[in-house]
Design a protein around this nucleic acid. Structure first.
Lengths: 254, 254
DNA sequence: CGACTAGTTGAGGCCAGTCAATGTTGGTGG
DNA sequence: CCACCAACATTGACTGGCCTCAACTAGTCG
Protein backbone atom coordinates (compact mmCIF):
# COMPACT_ATOMS: atom_id res chain seq x y z
CA UNK A 1 0.00 0.00 0.00
CA UNK A 2 2.87 2.29 -0.70
CA UNK A 3 1.69 5.31 -2.62
CA UNK A 4 4.92 5.61 -4.49
CA UNK A 5 3.63 3.99 -7.64
CA UNK A 6 0.11 5.16 -8.33
CA UNK A 7 0.02 4.44 -12.04
CA UNK A 8 1.70 1.06 -12.30
CA UNK A 9 -0.36 -1.91 -11.09
CA UNK A 10 2.31 -3.35 -8.81
CA UNK A 11 5.21 -4.99 -10.62
CA UNK A 12 6.23 -5.06 -14.21
CA UNK A 13 4.13 -7.96 -15.33
CA UNK A 14 4.26 -8.80 -18.97
CA UNK A 15 0.89 -8.51 -20.61
CA UNK A 16 -0.16 -11.99 -21.58
CA UNK A 17 -2.70 -12.10 -24.36
CA UNK A 18 -0.71 -10.71 -27.26
CA UNK A 19 2.58 -12.45 -26.77
CA UNK A 20 1.22 -15.87 -26.01
CA UNK A 21 2.20 -18.12 -28.89
CA UNK A 22 1.43 -21.73 -29.82
CA UNK A 23 4.45 -23.95 -29.67
CA UNK A 24 3.96 -27.08 -31.68
CA UNK A 25 1.36 -29.38 -33.15
CA UNK A 26 -0.63 -31.02 -30.36
CA UNK A 27 -0.34 -34.61 -31.49
CA UNK A 28 1.14 -37.15 -29.06
CA UNK A 29 1.81 -34.43 -26.54
CA UNK A 30 0.32 -36.19 -23.53
CA UNK A 31 1.79 -39.61 -24.15
CA UNK A 32 5.23 -38.05 -24.48
CA UNK A 33 4.82 -35.72 -21.52
CA UNK A 34 6.79 -36.39 -18.38
CA UNK A 35 3.77 -35.37 -16.29
CA UNK A 36 1.36 -37.87 -17.81
CA UNK A 37 1.09 -39.91 -14.61
CA UNK A 38 0.19 -36.81 -12.57
CA UNK A 39 -1.94 -34.82 -14.97
CA UNK A 40 -5.59 -34.86 -16.06
CA UNK A 41 -5.33 -37.82 -18.46
CA UNK A 42 -3.93 -40.08 -15.76
CA UNK A 43 -5.29 -43.59 -15.98
CA UNK A 44 -6.89 -43.16 -19.41
CA UNK A 45 -6.36 -45.93 -21.95
CA UNK A 46 -4.81 -45.44 -25.38
CA UNK A 47 -7.95 -44.52 -27.26
CA UNK A 48 -9.15 -42.22 -24.46
CA UNK A 49 -5.85 -40.41 -24.32
CA UNK A 50 -6.07 -39.86 -28.06
CA UNK A 51 -9.46 -38.25 -27.62
CA UNK A 52 -8.13 -36.17 -24.77
CA UNK A 53 -5.21 -34.96 -26.84
CA UNK A 54 -7.60 -33.85 -29.55
CA UNK A 55 -9.25 -31.55 -27.03
CA UNK A 56 -6.06 -30.07 -25.64
CA UNK A 57 -4.97 -26.91 -27.39
CA UNK A 58 -1.43 -26.08 -28.36
CA UNK A 59 0.90 -25.52 -25.42
CA UNK A 60 1.61 -21.92 -24.54
CA UNK A 61 4.99 -20.55 -23.75
CA UNK A 62 5.18 -18.04 -20.92
CA UNK A 63 8.05 -15.71 -20.19
CA UNK A 64 9.03 -14.98 -16.60
CA UNK A 65 6.46 -12.65 -15.02
CA UNK A 66 4.04 -13.16 -17.87
CA UNK A 67 0.39 -13.18 -16.87
CA UNK A 68 -1.56 -16.26 -17.93
CA UNK A 69 -4.90 -14.89 -16.75
CA UNK A 70 -6.12 -12.08 -14.57
CA UNK A 71 -8.88 -11.99 -12.00
CA UNK A 72 -12.09 -11.23 -13.83
CA UNK A 73 -10.92 -12.66 -17.16
CA UNK A 74 -13.53 -14.82 -18.82
CA UNK A 75 -12.99 -18.45 -17.92
CA UNK A 76 -12.75 -20.88 -20.77
CA UNK A 77 -9.96 -23.27 -19.98
CA UNK A 78 -7.91 -24.96 -17.30
CA UNK A 79 -4.16 -24.94 -17.64
CA UNK A 80 -1.81 -27.83 -17.00
CA UNK A 81 1.71 -26.80 -16.18
CA UNK A 82 4.11 -28.72 -18.35
CA UNK A 83 7.34 -26.90 -17.60
CA UNK A 84 8.19 -24.28 -15.00
CA UNK A 85 6.04 -22.83 -12.25
CA UNK A 86 3.37 -20.23 -11.65
CA UNK A 87 1.87 -18.45 -8.70
CA UNK A 88 -1.83 -17.77 -8.33
CA UNK A 89 -2.91 -14.85 -6.24
CA UNK A 90 -6.12 -13.33 -4.98
CA UNK A 91 -6.43 -9.58 -5.08
CA UNK A 92 -8.35 -7.57 -2.52
CA UNK A 93 -10.17 -4.42 -3.62
CA UNK A 94 -7.55 -2.25 -1.97
CA UNK A 95 -4.83 -3.80 -4.12
CA UNK A 96 -3.38 -6.07 -1.49
CA UNK A 97 -2.23 -9.35 -2.99
CA UNK A 98 -2.31 -12.71 -1.31
CA UNK A 99 -0.48 -15.55 -2.97
CA UNK A 100 -2.95 -18.42 -2.92
CA UNK A 101 -0.88 -21.06 -4.58
CA UNK A 102 2.57 -21.93 -5.83
CA UNK A 103 2.19 -24.41 -8.65
CA UNK A 104 4.79 -26.53 -10.37
CA UNK A 105 4.77 -28.87 -13.31
CA UNK A 106 2.09 -31.51 -13.43
CA UNK A 107 -0.36 -29.33 -11.54
CA UNK A 108 -3.52 -27.86 -12.98
CA UNK A 109 -4.64 -24.31 -12.33
CA UNK A 110 -7.70 -22.22 -13.06
CA UNK A 111 -10.06 -24.48 -11.15
CA UNK A 112 -11.72 -21.61 -9.31
CA UNK A 113 -12.95 -20.16 -12.59
CA UNK A 114 -15.52 -22.87 -13.27
CA UNK A 115 -18.02 -21.56 -10.76
CA UNK A 116 -18.28 -17.95 -11.77
CA UNK A 117 -17.32 -18.31 -15.43
CA UNK A 118 -14.61 -15.80 -14.65
CA UNK A 119 -11.28 -16.34 -12.98
CA UNK A 120 -11.23 -15.43 -9.32
CA UNK A 121 -7.50 -14.96 -9.12
CA UNK A 122 -4.58 -14.23 -11.37
CA UNK A 123 -1.84 -16.58 -12.52
CA UNK A 124 1.67 -15.37 -13.25
CA UNK A 125 4.69 -17.34 -14.42
CA UNK A 126 7.50 -17.37 -11.86
CA UNK A 127 10.00 -18.41 -14.50
CA UNK A 128 9.99 -19.39 -18.14
CA UNK A 129 7.17 -21.91 -18.34
CA UNK A 130 4.99 -23.92 -20.63
CA UNK A 131 1.33 -24.73 -20.05
CA UNK A 132 -1.20 -26.90 -21.86
CA UNK A 133 -4.60 -25.37 -22.50
CA UNK A 134 -7.55 -27.55 -21.54
CA UNK A 135 -10.73 -25.91 -22.88
CA UNK A 136 -13.25 -26.68 -20.20
CA UNK A 137 -16.43 -26.99 -22.25
CA UNK A 138 -14.83 -29.60 -24.48
CA UNK A 139 -13.38 -31.35 -21.45
CA UNK A 140 -16.80 -31.52 -19.85
CA UNK A 141 -18.30 -33.02 -23.00
CA UNK A 142 -15.57 -35.59 -23.35
CA UNK A 143 -15.85 -36.48 -19.67
CA UNK A 144 -19.40 -37.68 -20.25
CA UNK A 145 -18.18 -40.50 -22.44
CA UNK A 146 -14.93 -41.13 -20.59
CA UNK A 147 -15.76 -41.88 -16.95
CA UNK A 148 -12.12 -42.04 -15.94
CA UNK A 149 -11.63 -38.49 -17.14
CA UNK A 150 -14.76 -37.32 -15.38
CA UNK A 151 -13.52 -38.84 -12.17
CA UNK A 152 -10.07 -37.32 -12.59
CA UNK A 153 -11.63 -33.87 -12.91
CA UNK A 154 -13.67 -34.33 -9.75
CA UNK A 155 -10.56 -35.56 -8.00
CA UNK A 156 -8.50 -32.60 -9.16
CA UNK A 157 -11.04 -30.19 -7.78
CA UNK A 158 -11.46 -32.10 -4.58
CA UNK A 159 -7.73 -32.33 -4.05
CA UNK A 160 -7.49 -28.57 -4.40
CA UNK A 161 -10.15 -28.20 -1.71
CA UNK A 162 -8.20 -30.47 0.60
CA UNK A 163 -4.97 -28.61 -0.05
CA UNK A 164 -6.62 -25.31 0.74
CA UNK A 165 -8.04 -26.69 3.97
CA UNK A 166 -4.59 -27.73 5.06
CA UNK A 167 -3.16 -24.37 4.20
CA UNK A 168 -5.92 -22.72 6.20
CA UNK A 169 -5.03 -24.98 9.10
CA UNK A 170 -1.48 -23.73 8.88
CA UNK A 171 -2.44 -20.08 8.55
CA UNK A 172 -4.85 -20.26 11.43
CA UNK A 173 -3.20 -22.45 13.98
CA UNK A 174 0.55 -22.31 13.56
CA UNK A 175 3.07 -19.58 14.05
CA UNK A 176 5.63 -18.27 11.62
CA UNK A 177 8.26 -20.97 12.14
CA UNK A 178 5.80 -23.77 11.57
CA UNK A 179 4.35 -22.19 8.47
CA UNK A 180 7.67 -21.83 6.71
CA UNK A 181 8.75 -25.31 7.75
CA UNK A 182 5.52 -26.75 6.40
CA UNK A 183 5.85 -24.79 3.19
CA UNK A 184 9.34 -26.15 2.58
CA UNK A 185 8.36 -29.72 3.38
CA UNK A 186 5.37 -29.48 1.11
CA UNK A 187 7.47 -28.19 -1.77
CA UNK A 188 10.12 -30.79 -1.11
CA UNK A 189 7.56 -33.58 -1.28
CA UNK A 190 6.12 -32.31 -4.56
CA UNK A 191 9.54 -32.15 -6.15
CA UNK A 192 10.25 -35.65 -4.92
CA UNK A 193 7.03 -36.95 -6.53
CA UNK A 194 8.25 -35.51 -9.81
CA UNK A 195 11.60 -37.21 -9.63
CA UNK A 196 13.60 -34.21 -8.47
CA UNK A 197 15.68 -33.90 -5.37
CA UNK A 198 13.62 -33.53 -2.22
CA UNK A 199 16.51 -31.94 -0.35
CA UNK A 200 17.84 -29.40 -2.76
CA UNK A 201 15.81 -27.05 -4.91
CA UNK A 202 15.41 -23.48 -6.05
CA UNK A 203 12.68 -21.28 -4.63
CA UNK A 204 10.94 -19.55 -7.48
CA UNK A 205 9.20 -17.01 -5.30
CA UNK A 206 10.68 -13.95 -3.63
CA UNK A 207 10.69 -13.59 0.14
CA UNK A 208 7.78 -11.23 -0.27
CA UNK A 209 5.74 -13.77 -2.26
CA UNK A 210 6.51 -16.54 0.20
CA UNK A 211 5.52 -14.23 3.00
CA UNK A 212 2.28 -13.32 1.29
CA UNK A 213 1.52 -17.00 0.76
CA UNK A 214 2.06 -17.73 4.45
CA UNK A 215 0.55 -14.59 5.93
CA UNK A 216 3.92 -13.18 6.98
CA UNK A 217 6.07 -10.23 6.03
CA UNK A 218 9.15 -10.59 3.88
CA UNK A 219 11.39 -9.60 6.79
CA UNK A 220 10.00 -12.39 8.93
CA UNK A 221 10.59 -14.91 6.16
CA UNK A 222 14.14 -13.71 5.74
CA UNK A 223 14.82 -13.88 9.46
CA UNK A 224 13.38 -17.38 9.65
CA UNK A 225 15.65 -18.61 6.86
CA UNK A 226 18.61 -17.18 8.73
CA UNK A 227 17.46 -18.76 11.97
CA UNK A 228 16.87 -22.16 10.36
CA UNK A 229 20.32 -21.99 8.84
CA UNK A 230 21.91 -21.04 12.14
CA UNK A 231 20.18 -24.03 13.72
CA UNK A 232 21.63 -26.30 11.04
CA UNK A 233 18.23 -27.29 9.67
CA UNK A 234 18.97 -26.06 6.17
CA UNK A 235 21.36 -24.09 4.02
CA UNK A 236 20.08 -21.12 2.12
CA UNK A 237 21.74 -18.85 -0.40
CA UNK A 238 19.25 -16.49 -1.96
CA UNK A 239 16.75 -18.77 -3.68
CA UNK A 240 18.85 -21.92 -3.45
CA UNK A 241 17.79 -24.10 -0.57
CA UNK A 242 19.28 -27.31 0.74
CA UNK A 243 17.31 -29.09 3.45
CA UNK A 244 19.70 -30.75 5.89
CA UNK A 245 17.43 -32.11 8.60
CA UNK A 246 13.98 -33.09 7.43
CA UNK A 247 12.98 -34.46 10.81
CA UNK A 248 13.79 -31.17 12.51
CA UNK A 249 11.67 -29.39 9.93
CA UNK A 250 8.81 -31.77 10.58
CA UNK A 251 9.08 -31.10 14.28
CA UNK A 252 8.97 -27.38 13.62
CA UNK A 253 5.98 -27.76 11.31
CA UNK A 254 3.74 -29.75 13.60
CA UNK B 1 -3.51 -28.62 23.98
CA UNK B 2 -4.73 -28.69 27.51
CA UNK B 3 -3.61 -31.93 29.10
CA UNK B 4 -6.62 -32.03 31.38
CA UNK B 5 -8.54 -34.47 29.24
CA UNK B 6 -6.25 -37.15 27.93
CA UNK B 7 -8.83 -39.86 27.34
CA UNK B 8 -11.71 -37.94 25.79
CA UNK B 9 -11.16 -36.79 22.19
CA UNK B 10 -12.05 -33.15 22.85
CA UNK B 11 -15.74 -32.50 23.46
CA UNK B 12 -18.67 -34.75 24.07
CA UNK B 13 -19.55 -35.47 20.49
CA UNK B 14 -22.32 -37.89 19.87
CA UNK B 15 -21.19 -40.91 17.90
CA UNK B 16 -22.88 -40.75 14.56
CA UNK B 17 -23.16 -44.04 12.79
CA UNK B 18 -25.48 -45.93 15.08
CA UNK B 19 -28.04 -43.28 15.86
CA UNK B 20 -28.39 -41.90 12.35
CA UNK B 21 -31.88 -42.77 11.18
CA UNK B 22 -33.76 -42.39 7.89
CA UNK B 23 -36.59 -39.92 8.13
CA UNK B 24 -39.07 -40.41 5.33
CA UNK B 25 -39.54 -41.86 1.88
CA UNK B 26 -37.38 -39.98 -0.58
CA UNK B 27 -40.00 -39.25 -3.21
CA UNK B 28 -40.60 -35.62 -4.19
CA UNK B 29 -38.14 -34.41 -1.63
CA UNK B 30 -36.17 -32.08 -3.86
CA UNK B 31 -39.09 -30.45 -5.59
CA UNK B 32 -40.63 -29.66 -2.21
CA UNK B 33 -37.37 -28.54 -0.62
CA UNK B 34 -36.89 -24.88 0.16
CA UNK B 35 -33.26 -25.14 -0.92
CA UNK B 36 -33.94 -26.47 -4.41
CA UNK B 37 -32.75 -23.26 -6.10
CA UNK B 38 -29.42 -23.40 -4.23
CA UNK B 39 -28.71 -27.10 -4.09
CA UNK B 40 -27.21 -29.69 -6.45
CA UNK B 41 -30.33 -30.21 -8.63
CA UNK B 42 -30.54 -26.50 -9.45
CA UNK B 43 -31.56 -25.90 -13.04
CA UNK B 44 -32.56 -29.50 -13.76
CA UNK B 45 -35.80 -30.07 -15.62
CA UNK B 46 -38.67 -32.19 -14.32
CA UNK B 47 -37.51 -35.52 -15.63
CA UNK B 48 -33.94 -34.88 -14.56
CA UNK B 49 -34.97 -33.91 -11.06
CA UNK B 50 -36.94 -37.13 -10.84
CA UNK B 51 -33.82 -39.11 -11.74
CA UNK B 52 -31.84 -37.10 -9.23
CA UNK B 53 -34.32 -37.80 -6.48
CA UNK B 54 -34.07 -41.50 -7.20
CA UNK B 55 -30.37 -41.30 -6.42
CA UNK B 56 -30.70 -39.29 -3.23
CA UNK B 57 -30.92 -41.42 -0.13
CA UNK B 58 -33.27 -40.81 2.74
CA UNK B 59 -32.57 -37.64 4.72
CA UNK B 60 -30.70 -38.11 7.97
CA UNK B 61 -31.58 -36.44 11.20
CA UNK B 62 -28.69 -35.19 13.30
CA UNK B 63 -28.84 -34.21 16.94
CA UNK B 64 -26.80 -31.26 18.19
CA UNK B 65 -23.11 -32.22 18.37
CA UNK B 66 -23.71 -35.38 16.41
CA UNK B 67 -20.88 -36.37 14.08
CA UNK B 68 -21.87 -36.86 10.44
CA UNK B 69 -18.45 -38.12 9.41
CA UNK B 70 -14.96 -38.18 10.83
CA UNK B 71 -11.63 -37.54 9.18
CA UNK B 72 -10.50 -40.84 7.69
CA UNK B 73 -14.00 -42.26 7.30
CA UNK B 74 -14.52 -43.90 3.94
CA UNK B 75 -16.02 -41.43 1.50
CA UNK B 76 -19.14 -42.53 -0.27
CA UNK B 77 -21.48 -39.58 -0.35
CA UNK B 78 -21.83 -35.83 -0.31
CA UNK B 79 -24.30 -34.29 2.10
CA UNK B 80 -26.71 -31.48 1.38
CA UNK B 81 -27.81 -29.57 4.43
CA UNK B 82 -31.58 -29.30 4.42
CA UNK B 83 -32.16 -27.91 7.89
CA UNK B 84 -29.77 -26.59 10.52
CA UNK B 85 -26.03 -26.09 10.32
CA UNK B 86 -22.77 -27.99 10.64
CA UNK B 87 -19.15 -27.17 11.10
CA UNK B 88 -16.37 -28.95 9.28
CA UNK B 89 -12.97 -29.06 10.88
CA UNK B 90 -9.52 -30.27 10.04
CA UNK B 91 -7.57 -32.05 12.74
CA UNK B 92 -3.82 -31.84 13.12
CA UNK B 93 -1.88 -34.87 14.37
CA UNK B 94 -1.39 -33.22 17.74
CA UNK B 95 -5.12 -32.94 18.24
CA UNK B 96 -5.45 -29.25 17.45
CA UNK B 97 -8.67 -28.51 15.64
CA UNK B 98 -9.15 -25.86 13.00
CA UNK B 99 -12.70 -25.07 11.96
CA UNK B 100 -12.55 -25.05 8.17
CA UNK B 101 -16.14 -24.23 7.43
CA UNK B 102 -19.43 -23.18 8.92
CA UNK B 103 -22.19 -24.51 6.71
CA UNK B 104 -25.87 -23.72 6.70
CA UNK B 105 -28.86 -25.05 4.81
CA UNK B 106 -28.58 -25.31 1.07
CA UNK B 107 -24.86 -25.93 1.24
CA UNK B 108 -23.15 -29.18 0.33
CA UNK B 109 -20.35 -30.69 2.36
CA UNK B 110 -17.98 -33.59 2.02
CA UNK B 111 -16.40 -32.32 -1.20
CA UNK B 112 -12.86 -32.88 -0.01
CA UNK B 113 -13.49 -36.59 0.28
CA UNK B 114 -13.68 -37.25 -3.45
CA UNK B 115 -9.94 -37.05 -3.98
CA UNK B 116 -8.69 -39.44 -1.37
CA UNK B 117 -11.76 -41.66 -1.13
CA UNK B 118 -11.69 -40.78 2.55
CA UNK B 119 -12.92 -37.67 4.30
CA UNK B 120 -10.19 -35.21 5.10
CA UNK B 121 -12.08 -33.44 7.82
CA UNK B 122 -14.91 -34.08 10.20
CA UNK B 123 -18.42 -32.69 10.12
CA UNK B 124 -20.43 -32.05 13.27
CA UNK B 125 -23.95 -30.69 13.66
CA UNK B 126 -24.02 -27.35 15.46
CA UNK B 127 -27.72 -27.74 16.19
CA UNK B 128 -30.49 -30.17 15.37
CA UNK B 129 -30.13 -30.63 11.63
CA UNK B 130 -31.24 -32.63 8.64
CA UNK B 131 -29.06 -33.61 5.70
CA UNK B 132 -29.71 -35.32 2.38
CA UNK B 133 -27.33 -38.09 1.39
CA UNK B 134 -25.97 -37.87 -2.15
CA UNK B 135 -24.13 -41.13 -2.94
CA UNK B 136 -21.28 -39.96 -5.08
CA UNK B 137 -20.79 -42.93 -7.37
CA UNK B 138 -24.44 -42.82 -8.41
CA UNK B 139 -24.25 -39.06 -8.79
CA UNK B 140 -21.26 -39.40 -11.06
CA UNK B 141 -23.04 -41.94 -13.22
CA UNK B 142 -26.16 -39.84 -13.49
CA UNK B 143 -24.09 -36.78 -14.30
CA UNK B 144 -22.87 -38.44 -17.49
CA UNK B 145 -26.36 -38.39 -18.94
CA UNK B 146 -27.46 -35.13 -17.31
CA UNK B 147 -25.02 -32.40 -18.37
CA UNK B 148 -26.67 -29.79 -16.16
CA UNK B 149 -26.01 -31.94 -13.11
CA UNK B 150 -22.45 -32.58 -14.19
CA UNK B 151 -21.89 -28.87 -14.52
CA UNK B 152 -23.50 -28.17 -11.15
CA UNK B 153 -21.11 -30.58 -9.50
CA UNK B 154 -18.10 -28.93 -11.09
CA UNK B 155 -19.46 -25.57 -10.02
CA UNK B 156 -20.02 -26.69 -6.46
CA UNK B 157 -16.45 -27.84 -6.18
CA UNK B 158 -15.10 -24.77 -7.88
CA UNK B 159 -17.12 -22.47 -5.66
CA UNK B 160 -15.68 -24.16 -2.62
CA UNK B 161 -12.18 -23.53 -3.97
CA UNK B 162 -12.99 -19.85 -4.46
CA UNK B 163 -14.45 -19.58 -0.97
CA UNK B 164 -11.37 -21.13 0.53
CA UNK B 165 -9.12 -18.74 -1.37
CA UNK B 166 -11.03 -15.80 0.03
CA UNK B 167 -10.80 -17.15 3.53
CA UNK B 168 -7.07 -17.62 3.07
CA UNK B 169 -6.86 -14.03 1.94
CA UNK B 170 -8.54 -13.00 5.16
CA UNK B 171 -6.39 -15.23 7.35
CA UNK B 172 -3.21 -14.11 5.72
CA UNK B 173 -3.63 -10.44 5.14
CA UNK B 174 -6.11 -9.03 7.64
CA UNK B 175 -5.98 -8.54 11.35
CA UNK B 176 -8.41 -9.75 13.95
CA UNK B 177 -10.99 -6.96 13.59
CA UNK B 178 -11.24 -7.42 9.85
CA UNK B 179 -11.56 -11.18 10.07
CA UNK B 180 -14.48 -11.07 12.46
CA UNK B 181 -16.18 -8.30 10.48
CA UNK B 182 -15.78 -10.30 7.29
CA UNK B 183 -17.06 -13.44 8.97
CA UNK B 184 -20.20 -11.68 10.14
CA UNK B 185 -20.86 -10.03 6.77
CA UNK B 186 -20.38 -13.34 5.01
CA UNK B 187 -22.84 -15.08 7.30
CA UNK B 188 -25.28 -12.22 6.99
CA UNK B 189 -25.20 -12.44 3.20
CA UNK B 190 -25.79 -16.18 3.21
CA UNK B 191 -28.78 -15.84 5.50
CA UNK B 192 -30.14 -13.09 3.25
CA UNK B 193 -29.83 -15.34 0.19
CA UNK B 194 -31.95 -17.89 2.00
CA UNK B 195 -34.68 -15.45 2.85
CA UNK B 196 -33.69 -14.84 6.45
CA UNK B 197 -32.82 -11.55 8.08
CA UNK B 198 -29.42 -10.26 7.10
CA UNK B 199 -29.20 -8.10 10.20
CA UNK B 200 -30.28 -10.37 12.97
CA UNK B 201 -29.28 -13.97 13.46
CA UNK B 202 -28.05 -16.53 15.93
CA UNK B 203 -24.45 -17.67 15.92
CA UNK B 204 -24.34 -21.43 16.08
CA UNK B 205 -20.69 -21.61 16.97
CA UNK B 206 -19.05 -20.89 20.30
CA UNK B 207 -16.48 -18.12 20.65
CA UNK B 208 -13.86 -20.82 20.59
CA UNK B 209 -15.12 -22.27 17.32
CA UNK B 210 -15.36 -18.85 15.71
CA UNK B 211 -11.85 -18.13 16.91
CA UNK B 212 -10.57 -21.38 15.50
CA UNK B 213 -12.23 -20.63 12.18
CA UNK B 214 -10.56 -17.22 12.03
CA UNK B 215 -7.20 -18.11 13.50
CA UNK B 216 -7.87 -16.27 16.76
CA UNK B 217 -8.33 -17.20 20.40
CA UNK B 218 -11.72 -17.22 22.04
CA UNK B 219 -10.73 -14.30 24.26
CA UNK B 220 -9.89 -12.16 21.27
CA UNK B 221 -13.23 -12.97 19.66
CA UNK B 222 -15.05 -12.08 22.83
CA UNK B 223 -13.19 -8.80 23.20
CA UNK B 224 -13.90 -7.91 19.59
CA UNK B 225 -17.61 -8.46 20.04
CA UNK B 226 -17.51 -6.18 23.05
CA UNK B 227 -15.55 -3.56 21.16
CA UNK B 228 -17.85 -3.69 18.14
CA UNK B 229 -20.81 -3.29 20.45
CA UNK B 230 -19.22 -0.36 22.25
CA UNK B 231 -18.63 1.25 18.85
CA UNK B 232 -22.30 0.84 17.99
CA UNK B 233 -21.61 -1.45 15.05
CA UNK B 234 -23.68 -4.30 16.41
CA UNK B 235 -25.52 -5.62 19.43
CA UNK B 236 -24.51 -8.96 20.86
CA UNK B 237 -26.00 -11.03 23.63
CA UNK B 238 -24.34 -14.41 23.82
CA UNK B 239 -25.05 -16.00 20.46
CA UNK B 240 -27.70 -13.50 19.37
CA UNK B 241 -26.28 -10.89 17.05
CA UNK B 242 -27.91 -7.83 15.56
CA UNK B 243 -25.88 -5.96 12.98
CA UNK B 244 -26.57 -2.23 13.27
CA UNK B 245 -24.16 -0.67 10.81
CA UNK B 246 -23.30 -2.84 7.82
CA UNK B 247 -21.20 -0.13 6.20
CA UNK B 248 -19.03 0.22 9.28
CA UNK B 249 -18.53 -3.53 9.26
CA UNK B 250 -17.54 -3.43 5.60
CA UNK B 251 -15.02 -0.71 6.36
CA UNK B 252 -13.59 -2.81 9.15
CA UNK B 253 -13.43 -5.88 6.92
CA UNK B 254 -11.15 -4.28 4.44
C1' DC C 1 -26.97 -27.45 45.30
C1' DG C 2 -22.47 -28.46 43.07
C1' DA C 3 -20.30 -29.30 38.67
C1' DC C 4 -19.64 -27.90 34.27
C1' DT C 5 -19.74 -25.08 30.07
C1' DA C 6 -19.74 -20.62 27.94
C1' DG C 7 -18.55 -16.04 28.04
C1' DT C 8 -16.39 -11.61 29.75
C1' DT C 9 -12.65 -8.87 31.29
C1' DG C 10 -7.96 -7.65 33.07
C1' DA C 11 -2.68 -7.85 33.37
C1' DG C 12 1.53 -8.96 31.30
C1' DG C 13 4.65 -10.89 27.84
C1' DC C 14 6.12 -12.31 23.37
C1' DC C 15 5.91 -12.86 18.49
C1' DA C 16 5.76 -10.75 14.41
C1' DG C 17 4.84 -6.25 12.08
C1' DT C 18 6.85 -1.70 11.01
C1' DC C 19 10.43 1.40 9.94
C1' DA C 20 14.98 1.97 8.52
C1' DA C 21 19.75 1.20 7.00
C1' DT C 22 22.75 -1.58 4.42
C1' DG C 23 24.35 -5.45 1.49
C1' DT C 24 23.74 -8.41 -2.64
C1' DT C 25 22.37 -9.74 -7.16
C1' DG C 26 21.12 -9.34 -11.94
C1' DG C 27 20.10 -6.88 -16.01
C1' DT C 28 21.03 -2.88 -19.15
C1' DG C 29 23.49 0.44 -21.70
C1' DG C 30 27.63 3.05 -22.47
C1' DC D 1 34.11 -4.80 -19.49
C1' DC D 2 32.42 -1.90 -16.06
C1' DA D 3 29.12 1.46 -14.09
C1' DC D 4 24.73 2.00 -12.82
C1' DC D 5 20.23 1.04 -11.23
C1' DA D 6 16.43 -1.50 -9.58
C1' DA D 7 14.86 -5.41 -7.38
C1' DC D 8 15.79 -8.53 -3.87
C1' DA D 9 17.55 -9.73 0.59
C1' DT D 10 19.46 -9.22 5.30
C1' DT D 11 19.67 -7.35 9.84
C1' DG D 12 18.61 -4.22 13.75
C1' DA D 13 15.62 -1.43 16.87
C1' DC D 14 11.23 -0.54 18.29
C1' DT D 15 6.23 -1.15 18.81
C1' DG D 16 1.91 -3.07 19.30
C1' DG D 17 -1.57 -6.61 18.56
C1' DC D 18 -2.75 -10.81 19.99
C1' DC D 19 -1.87 -14.82 22.99
C1' DT D 20 -1.48 -16.59 27.63
C1' DC D 21 -2.79 -16.91 32.16
C1' DA D 22 -6.14 -15.96 35.41
C1' DA D 23 -10.25 -14.48 37.92
C1' DC D 24 -14.99 -13.93 37.83
C1' DT D 25 -20.08 -14.19 36.21
C1' DA D 26 -24.08 -16.37 34.17
C1' DG D 27 -26.62 -20.12 32.63
C1' DT D 28 -27.63 -25.26 32.44
C1' DC D 29 -28.11 -29.87 33.89
C1' DG D 30 -28.21 -33.80 36.82
Amino acid sequence: MKNTMPSKPSVRYIRGDASVVPMRAPQFQCRACSCRHLCAPRGLNGEEIRQFEAVVGSPLHLAKHQVLYRAGDLFHALYAIRVGSLKTSVLAEDGREQVAGNHIMGEIIGLDGIAAEAHGCQAVALEESEVCVLPFAALETLARSVPALQHNLYQLLSREVGRDHNLMLQLGSTRAEGRLADFLLNLSERYRQRGYSANEFVLRMTREEIGSHLGLTLETVSRLFSRFQAAGVLQVQGRDVKLLDLQALKDLAG
